[in-house]
Design a protein around this nucleic acid. Structure first.
Length: 950
RNA sequence: GCGGGGGUGGCCGAGCGGUCGAAGGCGUCGGACUUAAGAUCCGAUGGGCGUAGGCCCUGCGCGGGUUCGACUCCCGCCCCCCGCACCA
């Protein structure tokens, strides 16, 4: 198979049938899928989204469209840069990954350069898709980042446009930051266990000592400030005394470092050990209560301010710390705080159904927390209490105006209130200190030269919403809903990254920043329309250096003079005009196939950017598919059940893999399932398909019988259905009909005609069969087309079969069903009738009067009549008695009355025609009689003859 | 929690108010073919009963409801997957 596949790939390439140029005389279709990120090989999951675009491209090509299907590659962002650095540093994990790909020890060091990754993996991707038979116009391929100057220029143009429109704005933004290297630390720069942790905003309640010194306590639950009984401080930790924005604070050193990076003016003026503060009192800035500072070892100086407030009634940590302290005579003695501690009573703030007035106590008991060192149980207890209180708890009376409401409802309002009264501020922290790969402890910095895409802009949102009206989403309405919702809540997006940790296109007006990867890939499909010019610039005399915004203004907007611009970049007016034509002809994109995870970001971003830059040229149809499971299990490298596209191609070849991918699912947001057994099976079956067709093509007889009409009807019905499913991209339904159902019909037809098909009918059907399978399994289709049918053309660009509606013959199909059912019934009767070696089967048709009568009965039943008396009216008086029982059971179960399709004569004719077949099927002689004196005969109904085994 | 999508037979998956004991595929079982195995073809495949094509029971996450009728509609619950942002 692989050899056949390679042969046709070469033929297609030689004939350039997938290279598409603007041709205004033909209707066009522009199909894309998101360019893959090139830090590794693609796997079956990627291929699943991609195969939708590929199948659609092939289908539309066969439907007579001029189809553009290009493919580029994405290199923007941090992973490649991080991977290259790790190779330079000799990280064994990354070296192992490259070894698994089969790179030699000599070659691996070259991957210390990001360019090596980009080059290697974009080539591997390209080769993988090529070997899968993708019908891509490779002339238009490219990769992103400033390493590809023309694309770089294009992205810069885009951002200048956005900036002009006021859609890129400057702001500040919290990031995880390495204070030593002074760069932001993304997931790829961290030790693995810290991946995925981001900055969180905590509220800092400013308790004060008598002299005004602020004792700041960080908390996620500022609403519990009403129930503070004391402050916890770590007795053994050295805190700093600092001037913070003009106030005197006592805070952990790490906390002070955070404040410095978060736009606060911080000056450290002294140090103080935690225990020195123990026993002192501070004033609660919200309630005015005076509360003591007490020692606790669970307090982490590396989280927030390193000091926390204690709300024993509602915080399991606080409850157990207090319990611990009460029992700890030594400590009580040491600080002379015994009396203070004994006096502390928890304050109940929030009522929660199913809990006592002190939910923290309940939780501590439930999870069996023994001491404040029992971290695991405490975390569970805390989570439970937090959730319960947050969503369902009711605030008690001491909340005054907030009383009776839930935390969820009033939290934000309360925080604002506290800030306004000078009782609180906020700071950014990570829930645990993050360590980067170099071993540095990272903090949260508020970065100031940060640029944002202003997705919060109401006018922009409105424009984005408008384009949805003329956009199709598949599956509708699920995918649409996700996008609609995202447009609503999406706010400003930090669209730049520090150049030191990433790769991409620099912001035109700030070269310390790269445009972030999701933000540089929103309208690049437009670049495909001219990519073959710009990626081969020298061929057209274009000096890429000279390309500026005016160049793109002309190509995309038709602004300016082609002659002038041509001169400036060193090419001709013709070339400029040709590029303009390409864009005008191909844009907008007609179909873009993605995974469901992209709906909330890439898809929505792309919609926004099109609305801003290419109004009315937005993408016309988006598809979103689910993940791909492998044999019902999630695919993952760690499980070792991940299969790359290259591996699949080597193991099963392109067509079998494509078939199994198509069969993996329809176009829904649900997960699809790639079954390796299907791929394996198709490896066997596809060549057999060719043999089968070779065996029958051009064979058969000339006579045209009813059964041939039946066959044509079935085939046309399948073509119709397959055509619709291709347009809908329900790939599983396509395969179900075009392959499995077609096989069934073909097999039955041959059996039914005793291997004597109508030559013309059957051969035409075989050709149609190959065509309707071609978008899914193009190689074997091409092979059959040439080698079996002896055609000169490529089936890949042949006309898709057109349904002949006049050939769809409902009645003929029903008549054949009648024959089939009769066979089934005979088989059943033969099984039950214990007649040894039956001599013959007699089929007795119903009496003539029954045809009219039961047609009427059936009609009445279909119209909802459930009254025996009424049904009886349809029966001639003299026969009523005989059918009374039947009619009364038909009222309960209308199925008992068969549908009357034809006349008695037609029934007889159909059975006679099928007699030879039936005898062969059943291995018994069959006689069809109209008159036969046997009691069973009165059981006969129209389309349900009586059967007698003798 | 919010937003999106789901839970169907041994497995995968259709169905989304009657025609459903549930398409199709896989698997399993029986038969044909074959020296044999494989492949292929035919049949069966929830349980039970049946010397005549039939009947009974049970059934599409759980519990209710609407309806003459629910896998399909409504309500409540349980469980699973995805996203929740600066990561591609």
């Amino acid at each position: 198979m692989q050899r056949i596949e390679e042969k046709w790939q070469k033929e297609w390439e030689r004939a350039r049938i997938f290279e598409a140029d603007a041709d205004p005389s033909r209707p066009k279709i522009f199909v894309t899928f998101p360019y893959p990120y090139v830090n590794g090989d693609g796997h079956l999951g990627h291929l699943y989204s991609q195969i939708h675009a590929e199948i659609y491209a092939r289908y539309k090509r066969m439907k007579g469209y001029n189809v553009l299907f290009p493919q580029g590659f994405h290199a923007t962002g941090q992973p490649i840069v991080a991977a290259a650095r790790r190779i330079r540093e000799g990280d064994p994990k990354y070296i192992r990954i490259l070894k698994q790909y089969g790179f030699s020890d000599e070659e691996i060091p070259e991957f210390g350069d990001p360019k090596k990754w980009i080059k290697t993996f974009s080539e591997r991707w390209k080769s993988a898709l090529h070997k899968m038979g993708f019908s891509i116009d490779w002339r238009r391929s490219f990769h992103t980042t400033e390493l590809n100057p023309p694309y770089d220029k294009f992205v810069r143009w885009q951002y200048n446009k956005l900036k002009e429109k006021g859609l890129v704005v400057k702001g500040s933004h919290p990031v995880v930051w390495c204070p030593v290297e002074e760069i932001p630390i993304g997931d790829h720069d961290r030790q693995d266990e810290f991946a995925g942790i981001g900055p969180e905003e905590v509220v800092v309640i400013k308790f004060r000592m008598d002299d005004g010194t602020v004792i700041p306590t960080g908390t996620y639950r500022p609403e519990t400030v009403y129930g503070v009984t004391n402050i916890w401080i770590h007795p053994d930790v050295e805190y700093v005394i600092a001037e913070v924005d003009g106030e005197r604070w006592i805070i952990s050193e790490w906390g002070a470092e955070h404040l410095k990076e978060q736009q606060h003016d911080v000056k450290i003026v002294g140090r103080v050990k935690g225990e020195e503060l123990v026993g002192k009192y501070v004033k609660n800035p919200v309630t005015g209560d005076s509360v003591p500072i007490l020692p606790a070892t669970f307090v982490d100086p590396d989280v927030a301010t390193g000091i926390v407030m204690s709300v024993p009634a509602h915080a399991p940590y606080d409850w157990i710390a207090l319990e611990d302290l009460k029992k700890d005579e030594e400590t009580l003695e040491k600080y002379g705080i015994k009396e203070i501690v004994q006096k502390i009573e928890p304050i109940s703030l929030i009522g929660v159904e199913g809990y006592s007035e002190f939910p923290a106590k309940d939780a501590v008991e439930k999870y069996g927390v023994k001491s404040q060192k029992d971290v695991e149980a405490l975390e569970k207890a805390t989570e439970e209490i937090y959730k319960k209180e947050f969503y369902t708890g009711k605030l008690k009376g001491l909340y005054g105006e907030f009383a009776g409401r839930t935390v969820q409802e009033v939290k934000d309002e309360m925080i604002e209130r506290f800030k306004d009264m000078g009782a609180a501020t906020t700071m950014w922290v990570t829930p645990v200190p993050i360590i980067d790969r170099a071993g540095h402890k990272c903090l949260v910095k508020i970065v100031e030269n940060q640029w944002f895409l202003k997705y919060s802009d109401e006018k922009w949102k409105e424009k984005a919403r408008e384009t949805l009206e003329t956009t199709r989403f598949d599956p509708e309405p699920d995918a649409r809903r996700a996008v609609e919702h995202t447009i609503e809540w999406l706010h400003d997006w930090a669209c730049t990254r520090d150049v030191r940790s990433s790769l991409g296109t620099k912001l035109p007006w700030d070269d310390s920043q790269y445009i972030e990867s999701l933000s540089d890939s929103t309208i690049y499909m437009a670049y495909y329309t001219i990519a073959h010019y710009l990626q081969n610039a020298e061929k057209y005399g274009i000096d890429v250096e000279k390309i500026d915004d005016a160049f793109f203004d002309y190509v995309f907007y038709g602004k300016g003079d082609a002659e002038d611009i041509a001169k400036k970049v060193g090419t001709t007016k013709d070339v400029m005009e040709a590029m303009r034509r390409e864009f005008e002809y191909w844009y907008p994109v007609d179909l873009r196939s993605t995974g469901k995870d992209l709906l909330q970001n890439h898809v929505t971003f792309s919609i926004f950017h099109h609305a801003a830059i290419f109004p009315n040229k937005h993408i016309r149809r988006w598809t979103a598919n689910g993940w791909v499971l492998l044999n019902g299990e999630k695919m993952s490298k760690s499980k070792g059940n991940s299969i790359t596209i290259i591996q699949a191609q080597e193991q099963w070849g392109a067509d079998a893999t494509r078939f199994a991918e198509a069969y993996a699912g329809n176009l829904t947001l649900e997960d699809a399932n790639f079954e390796t057994e299907i791929a394996e099976q198709m490896v066997e079956e596809l060549p057999r398909w060719k043999d089968f067709i070779a065996q029958w093509y051009g064979k058969g007889i000339d006579e045209y019988r009813d059964i041939d009409r039946w066959f044509e009807s079935r085939v046309n019905r399948i073509i119709k259905m397959v055509d619709e499913e291709y347009e809908a991209l329900n790939t599983r339904n396509i395969v179900n009909a075009a392959w499995f159902e077609f096989w069934r019909v073909v097999r039955y037809y041959l059996r039914r005609t005793m291997n004597g098909p109508n030559k013309e009918v059957f051969s035409n059907a075989l050709e149609d069969w190959v065509k309707i399978m071609a978008p899914v399994t193009p190689h074997i289709a091409e092979e059959i087309w040439h080698e079996v049918f002896g055609k000169d053309s490529f089936v890949s660009v042949e006309k898709f079969p057109k349904v002949d509606e006049s050939k769809i013959d409902e009645r003929m199909e029903k008549m054949e069903e009648f024959v089939q059912r009769t066979v089934d019934d005979i088989r059943e009767v033969m099984k039950l009738a214990k007649v040894e070696e039956p001599e013959r089967v007699v089929i007795m048709l119903a009496d003539q009067w029954k045809y009219d009568a039961f047609r009427k009965v059936r009609e009445m039943l279909e119209n909802g009549v459930r009254n025996v008396g009424q049904l009886m009216e349809a029966i001639p008086a003299e026969h009523r008695k005989d059918v009374a029982k039947l009619l009364s059971s038909a009222v309960k179960n209308p199925k008992r009355i068969p549908e009357v399709i034809g006349t008695r004569e037609e029934e007889k004719e159909a059975l006679e025609q099928a007699r030879e077949f039936m005898e062969a099927e059943l291995g018994v002689k069959i006689e069809i009689v109209e008159d036969y004196d046997h009691p069973k005969r009165k059981n006969a109904l129209p389309f349900k003859p009586a059967i007698l085994v003798e």
